[in-house]
Write a protein that binds this DNA or RNA. Structure first.
Lengths: 144, 144
DNA sequence: TGAAAACAGTACCTGAATGGTCCTGATTGC
DNA sequence: GCAATCAGGACCATTCAGGTACTGTTTTCA
């Protein structure tokens, strides 16, 4: 099913909420949890990961919270996926994983998933988070 | 990590072996297992799935075995992925899964993964199994 | 100066899905 | 009639993602 982790989905939701309330202020993790309907610990986890990746900025203290480091339009989807799910690769058979596959010697497609991974990366790099959240009504937007 | 199931990987391997030995004859599941280095039950499972999807043809009986229904060059990767992993969709938030998400009411990206899924499908539909197995030495083939 | 608020980091537990195996039945050829 | 092979389904174990909790650090305010 080519599944993407739920955390990535949550990340997009949270980022969208952050963008909406981005009027110079910050939003707290509990506040974002309430706004999105997600669990507070989960939202906190997502925000921590995004903060680590530099997509959001966390400010500690009593008046702390999170805010975006860039507008969503300048935030490609690949950045979020890479932050949550790690490097974008369809299978474990990528360049840096030698010895994992037990059929390595006889496998005829060793390293051949690279063009697929590249195609996926290229397809995703053209989509920003703003494209996902921007216009729920404008149905046909990513078809060129 | 955008993981694809191992079965799909195995399927590509098995299909490649089938193509190699496709000189009018058929290959048995144990034979393919020996040729690929994979376990016999696993290979058999993959072949059954592929047969169900119409990508290979199984012939019962003493001289039975499997053979390709189409050349690998005419077999898009999406067909294999769809056969093994089901419909190609990145997340559970697709059109036919209403009610699964508990934050449905407040989720700002509901249904917005569609352009992403479409981009993925388009990227994968241009790649055939032959492209994966065809030329392990010709490194730059999918980069235009 | 102390308390409260909020992020930062880590560890742990649970549940589901994948991966792999096995068994039984149906079909075909010798 | 027997052997070989696919077909179909059920079953179990392992792994990993999802979710939670706890503790520490930093900042603000009374």
């Amino acid at each position: 099913m080519l599944r993407l982790s739920k955390l990535t989905d949550y990340a997009v939701v949270v980022l969208t909420r952050l963008e909406e309330a981005e009027e110079g202020g910050v939003l707290t993790a509990p506040g974002l949890a309430a706004a999105t309907g997600l669990g507070e610990p989960t939202v906190s986890k997502v925000l921590k990961i995004l903060s680590h990746a530099g997509l959001v900025e966390g400010r500690r203290g009593a008046l702390g919270g999170y805010r975006l480091t860039r507008p969503l339009a300048a935030m490609p989807l690949t950045d979020v996926i890479a932050a949550i799910d790690g490097p974008i690769a369809l299978t474990a058979c990528v360049d840096n994983s030698i010895g994992v596959c037990d059929a390595e010697a006889t496998c005829p497609v060793r390293g051949r998933w690279d063009p697929v991974n590249d195609a996926i990366r290229r397809a995703l790099s053209g989509i920003s988070i703003a494209d996902l959240a921007g216009a729920p009504q404008r149905a046909a937007l990513a078809a060129e």
